[in-house]
Every structure is written in C-alpha cells, then in structure tokens.
Nucleic acid binder design. Structure first.
Lengths: 208, 208
DNA sequence: GTCCGATGTATCGGAGTGATACATCGGCCT
DNA sequence: AGGCCGATGTATCACTCCGATACATCGGAC
C-alpha cells in the first residue's frame, strides 16, 4: 500500500548508496541534488524512510559513537558520548531495487522532478537508458513548447507588453533547456562512438 | 477563515477584471498565465471561487444564451438553448480588493509563484510598486545563488561529471533570470526618467 | 553564564493534486 | 445513419506533500 513517491524513493536509495547517512544529512543532500528548493520536507522524508524500513530496502542503526562512517566531514568533534543519531544504510534488497529503478526509462523518468533525479545518477546508469531518458525529456519539452507557442499565437492580440514579456521569457527558458539537452545527447553519441572515454562539454561554448 | 491561496485569488481577480468568464475558461487562462503547468487544479479553483462568492468579491450568473458576453471567441455556434455555464464577474468589492492587492509589495510578492502573477498584472500596477517587486525578486534570486554556490563549493570534490553538469545548468538558469531582471529594472528606470513613454526591450539583443 | 543558530528527530493541520464522475457538444470514421 | 472520441463544462474526494511547530542538544559568541 501507500505508493510513496517513487522520485523520493529513488533519490534516497541513490544517496544512501554512496554513503550511510542520518535523516538531517539526507535532507540537505536532497536539497542540493534537486536544486535549491523543491526538496521534500521532513514531513515526507521521515514517513518515507519508515516505509522503506518496513519494506527492508534500508536498515537503521543508532550511531554508537564509533568511527564507522568513513567521514572526513565531522572534524573529530565527537569525543565522548554523542547523542544517538539514526544512521540509515542500504540493504542488499535496496541495492537491487536501486539498480532496477535505474534500469527503467518511461514517461515517469522525464517529467520535471523525476528527470532531475534520474540525471543525477546517470554515472551509474546504462548508456542506452541514459539516451532514452534524454530523448524522452527532449520530446516532452518539445510538446510543451508546441502548446505554449500555439497558445501564444491565439492570445497574442490581447496581451499587454508585460504579459507578453513574461510569455517570451518562459518560452525562451524552455528553448534553452532543449538546446542543453541537444548538447548532452550529442555528447552521449560522441561518447558512444569512441568507447566511452570522453568528458561532458568538451569544448565549452555555451555562453557568449 | 480558510486563507485561500492569495496567489490564486489575485490571479482570478485580475483575470475576471479583464472579462467575465466561466470556470473552465478561467482555468485555461490560469495555465497560460502561470506558464504551461503549475496552474491550480479544479479541486482548488472551484472551492476558491465558492469562497470568493461568499466574500462578495465576485458574482455568478447562469448564462442565459444571451449575447451579453462581448465575445469574438465563440464563433456564434450558440444557436438554440445552450447548456447553462456559470459566468463569474467582479463586484465593486472585488475591484477594490484587486487594486489593494496590486498595491502591496512584500516578501509574498517575489517568491516564484506570486512573482509571476504580480508581473502579469504590471501594466495595472503603480511604477513604484513594480520597482520594489522587481528588486525584491532580484535579491531573492541573489540569495538563492549565494546558497547554491557555497553548497557547490563544499561538495564539488565528490561529484561526478553528470551531477556537476546538473548543478552547473541549474546555476546558469538562475543567473539568466537575474540578468533578465536587470534588463527589466533598467528598462523601468529609463521609462521613469522620460515620463513613461517607452517599450519594454527597446533594442533587442538578448540572444545571439 | 546565557543566548542563539545549527544539528537532529518527529508530527500534524491543511493546502493542493490527480483521478474520477457525469453530461453535452461537434467532428470524424465507417 | 450510427457510433466513437476528444473538447467543453462543473464538481468532489482520497491522498500526498508542505510549512509550522515541538522538543532536545551542541558549539560558539558576547
């Protein structure tokens, strides 16, 4: 029951795969992963963790002030008895689930939120899946552009300068993202051609 | 009671000020006003209309198949007895409320959603208020940029190429919006200097 | 010393969504 | 003709998610 947001689940899985973590830290990573805001709140995160525990995807340990978490972050302030933080880590089932989710490319991979998360884990994603997601995302934006433009066409007449400017700016933003995707797709193709040894954005010419 | 979303209320007020409308049409305008998605659903819109009715900000009429709605849209298909649509229009109280809301510039005017709506009605907004909102928005984005950059600084080391690219793209988007605002602010200043006779974006050099 | 902001876990009221229901319309295919 | 389908139209409901809040401890500033 309770189909907890697949996006959040994937993000948590991927974050915990890198390193075990407690809730607060997890949430901070979510913020930077999903870009500034639009990370889920604690009111969503904690229940989600609880559910994932129940499903056996993750395991929780009360931190025992041991040096077990290979951290270069904490500057060794934990001298005596630290308060117990709940550290979560992936179980084998969780690892499997993560791999499984990374392997699927569908409409739910290229909507705004899901796309960002999938993209963040591209380094661990199969090249073919990456391609399908990038192209799916692109055509999704293309659709949006289409709707946008035709709607603009129909209403242009009765719009004042400010409203028009707002529309124009919105349109331009989406167009820019399409161009960004084009670059990425191109880069993926080049990479595929010469066996995967290639950087993203080899010659940097986006701006100016 | 029930502080219905001020954003939605303002948008509805502004839309109905232009022309009386029924719910379905209202919602479509909301979509194009707020840019593609992120318009409120009917589950929000209808309750909001109900509440605004109760407060006397708007009035509802069952359309009587009369030619009362100065429409060039409907291509005169309404021959015989059309099904009754519920047409909403502003009351004097609603007009007042709209003017009042347009007059305020505060933190709740330059968050993402509110800013879009306020901007859409800039043509009916006092020049000083416009300026305060644009500048508020700008510094809001500047804050976001700050947080973003310092977070990037801290985590750059352990990010793979894809994650880094995602961050870079996000950062660039916000930077672009700041530049857009700068242009607008500049344009406002020029307009103020020579008494309001001036277009937005006089010499068009944004792209290329 | 003590106040304050960051760290940390957790819950709750309520706003907002997505799905769905129901009904009529015009246009398209056969 | 008949039937199907997508757009127009109003409306609700379960469920998700957010924002505020509570509570507790920490290190550092004053």
């Amino acid at each position: 029951m309770s189909r907890r947001s697949a996006v959040l689940e994937l993000a948590v899985l991927g974050l915990l795969k890198d390193a075990p973590m407690h809730g607060y830290e997890l949430r901070k990573r979510l913020v930077s992963l999903l870009g500034w805001g639009r990370a889920f709140s604690y009111g969503t995160l904690y229940p989600c963790l609880k559910e994932m525990l129940r499903q056996g995807l993750i395991a929780a340990d009360a931190e025992t002030a041991e040096a077990g978490n290979g951290s270069a972050l904490r500057t060794r302030t934990l001298t005596a008895g630290r308060r117990a933080r709940i550290v979560y880590q992936l179980t084998p089932a969780g690892q499997e689930r993560f791999v499984e989710m990374l392997g699927q490319a569908g409409p739910s991979s290229w909507e705004d939120e899901p796309f960002g998360v999938h993209f963040a884990f591209f380094a661990q994603t199969d090249a073919q899946v990456r391609m399908r997601i990038l192209e799916g995302r692109r055509s999704r934006l293309e659709e949006r552009l289409e709707a946008f433009r035709s709607s603009l066409q129909r209403t242009r007449a009765r719009l004042d300068a400010y409203t028009l400017e707002l529309q124009r700016h919105g349109l331009e933003s989406v167009e820019r993202e399409v161009r960004w995707l084009d670059e990425l797709i191109d880069s993926e193709r080049r990479r595929a051609r010469n066996g995967g040894r290639q950087d993203l954005r080899p010659q940097h010419t986006t701006e100016r």
